[in-house]
Write a protein that binds this DNA or RNA. Structure first.
Lengths: 124, 124
DNA sequence: CTGTATCCAAATAGATACTG
DNA sequence: CAGTATCTATTTGGATACAG
């Protein structure tokens, strides 16, 4: 059911929800963050591997987004002390709490892609 | 458990997931889209109400994001034929299928805000 | 290998004025 | 009221070179 004007719910509840959504989106803001997280959910990756794997990202942007994810403790950065240096990024325990998101985002995307291809209406 | 290098899963599964995530993020890309959708989940709103309610958005950006959401059939636009014109935006049936997302985004944001305030580590 | 610094190009956003 | 057009300011991104 699509809500009507009369379905209006308490303002404060909506406001709290909006703020919480903004909090989440702030942390995930950046074109590639969710994509990086999803990859790291599968397995740890080196900087160079991410750079090669993520189509279209530049080194500058990759290192910035990785740093932001690390500051928020969603991923962990591990440096090997040998030469040449090897840096591995892996999802953190806390990053795994985003699991519900990294499940429902692709779930919706899949059904949307099917819907589009059935309808042939929009470009994807 | 944080995965280790040895937990590597089949490449194709990961790739499919990444693509599906990108599909979803493409449609939700734009600083305010999720916020707009969440509001409309509560009740339909007029253009001017959204403009006043969403802190920091400009008219140009609002109308563009609304148009993109409409093209993807996530919201519906309703024009009253009277003067002065009144345009109401409401969530569509299809937009409601994003419900899982508009639930888990704020859920994570809430617990994150609590975590931050406990730790006092990062700024929110 | 893993970044950072610099420079420049492109995309995005805000303000204002204006139209139907 | 609900936008659009235009201009300008700011942000963002890529490429290259270079450092540790």
């Amino acid at each position: 059911m699509v809500p009507t004007i009369t379905d209006l719910q308490p303002f404060t509840e909506c406001q709290k929800k909006i703020r919480a959504i903004d909090d989440t989106m702030d942390i995930l803001s950046g074109k590639w963050k969710v994509s990086i997280l999803a990859r790291l959910c599968y397995n740890p990756m080196r900087y160079s591997a991410l750079l090669k794997d993520i189509n279209g990202i530049s080194g500058k942007v990759l290192s910035r987004e990785l740093k932001e994810l690390e500051v928020n403790e969603l991923i962990a950065r591990e440096v090997s002390p040998f030469r040449p240096p090897a840096v591995t990024y892996r999802i953190s325990e806390y990053g795994l709490t985003l699991g519900a998101l990294t499940e429902c985002l692709p779930a919706w995307g899949l059904q949307h892609r099917e819907r589009i291809s059935r309808a042939g209406k929009a470009k994807l």
